[in-house]
Computed example of a mutant assay.
Amino acid sequence: MAKSTLARAKREVRLSVHKASGLWCKVHKGKRHYFERVEEDPQGTRSLDQWLEIKAGRRPRNTSGVTVKDAAEEWMQAKRSRLHAGEIVQDTYDEYFKACDLIFKSLGKETSVSELEPADFAKLRSDLAKRYGPVALGKHIGQIKSLFRYSFDAGLIKSPVRFGPSFVKPSAKVIRKQRAKRGKQDFDANEVHQLIAASGPNWKAMILLGVQAGFGNRDVAELEVGLVDLKTGWLNYPRAKTGIERRIPLWPETVAAIQAVIESHPGGTDRLFVGHRGRDFCTENRTGGNRVTGAFKPVLKAAGFPEKGRGFYCLRRTFQTQAEECGDLVAVRAIMGHSDSESDMSARYRQRVSDSRLQRTVETVWEWLYAGEVQS
């Protein structure tokens, strides 16, 4: 830019002072950009230069005025790119978005990242610990650290954020104790029959998919009518969380239950399961998850179980526990839709798992659930 043009631009552009942070700022197209601290740049000279860099489409040379909101937006933009490229799934993206919301509530959107201290992260961890158990707490701490590390790696901030010694994930010992405190996290055969007996057509089919195919909450919520081949009794359905393809042989009982759901389907959606108010189960509840978790509580109550302690996802744990009795862990993982470790060379070379192995896996669970009834 010529010197005369630069001088004219500087005269025409006015910066404001953001009182809460003490930073020079400029609002442009609905977005507020932050620059230097007023006490360090009293005339706004360096801040104005930074604004002209942004206006010209370049990243400002000095980034001391980056706020928590700015850092989060840049991080989420990177996650959106990965989502659109198919590198992460929508569930993972939604978790990252939730992490940003947690940061905003504790640290404040307009707080300058350069001013964050270990005490701020100690407070953030305390806030999270009041709301989440050890496993979820550890997950959110990892996501938050990823956000601020990205800010440094991407050149948004000049030095790494210091999290302090207390902003760490709960220890393995704490997690083990928490799991032991929660108690039993699967269902025995009699309990599964109790659940089925207390269920209408929708929940009967969903429970059977959970216990014979390892379906989780989002799996049943997002299952589409067209994916179920009732003639062959097979279901080809990638797991929503990992995108791993799954090919699952269905029990006759499961096929019949799904047929009953299809026959009474109200239409208006491609989703197989629709609630009594005409909404599918993908609709978000107030905590940001799908509606399966809350809607399953009345089923537990009707079956005589406490509403707290176990949920629909425990059916997935039940399948894993019982299916392993077949001795073919590879087939169990294939039905569960688990992603393989990068160091697992066998998984890299394995191209498929035969239908007969998949069939033996689900038959093992069928025998556990129904053999006692057949013999009685």
Rank of each mutant, 00 (worst) to 15 (best):
K130I: 15
L156I: 04
P134N: 07
Q143H: 12
K184D: 09
K173S: 08
V168C: 00
K139F: 09
Q185H: 10
L137Y: 10
P134C: 13
S146I: 00
K158F: 09
L147S: 09
P160C: 06
V161F: 10
A129S: 13
V161Y: 09
L137M: 14
V161I: 02
R179A: 07
D127S: 15
F152D: 02
L147E: 01
K158N: 09
Y150A: 05
S166R: 14
P170T: 15
L128W: 00
G133A: 07
K181Y: 13
R131S: 03
A180T: 12
R179Y: 12
D153W: 04
K173Y: 08
Q178L: 08
G164S: 10
V135K: 13
F167S: 13
Q178T: 15
F163E: 01
F167K: 08
A180V: 14
A172Y: 13
H140G: 08
R162N: 15
I144H: 01
Q178E: 10
G138K: 05
F163T: 08
V161W: 01
S166I: 11
K145C: 02
K184S: 04
K169L: 03
G138P: 13
G183L: 05
G133N: 01
Q185V: 10
Y132N: 10
F152W: 00
L128Q: 00
S166T: 15
G155R: 07
P134V: 10
L137A: 14
Q178P: 00
A180P: 03
L147M: 13
A180G: 11
D153C: 02
K130Q: 09
V168P: 00
K181G: 06
V135R: 06
K181P: 03
P165Y: 12
V174L: 13
Q185T: 11
G155W: 05
G133W: 02
P160W: 05
S166K: 12
F152K: 12
G142Q: 15
F148A: 05
A180N: 13
L137F: 03
S171D: 01
K139C: 02
V161M: 01
G142R: 09
R131E: 11
P134G: 10
S171C: 11
K145R: 15
K173W: 14
V161L: 04
D153R: 07
Q185M: 09
I144N: 05
P170H: 15
G138H: 04
P160A: 05
R182C: 06
P165W: 14
R182V: 11
I157R: 02
K173C: 01
F163D: 05
R176W: 12
L156S: 10
H140Y: 15
Q143D: 15
F148E: 02
A129G: 07
I144W: 06
P170S: 15
G133C: 09
F167H: 03
D153Q: 12
R149S: 01
G133E: 09
R131A: 07
L156F: 12
R182E: 14
F152Q: 04
Q185Y: 05
S159E: 12
S171G: 13
L147I: 14
G138Y: 04
S151L: 05
V174Y: 11
D153A: 08
F167L: 06
R131D: 11
R176M: 14
R131L: 01
F167Q: 06
D127I: 09
A129I: 13
Y150H: 13
S159F: 10
S159K: 07
R131W: 14
K169H: 07
R182S: 00
I157F: 13
Y132R: 06
L147Q: 05
R162Y: 07
K145M: 11
A136F: 10
G164L: 05
Q185W: 11
K184C: 07
H140C: 12
R179V: 02
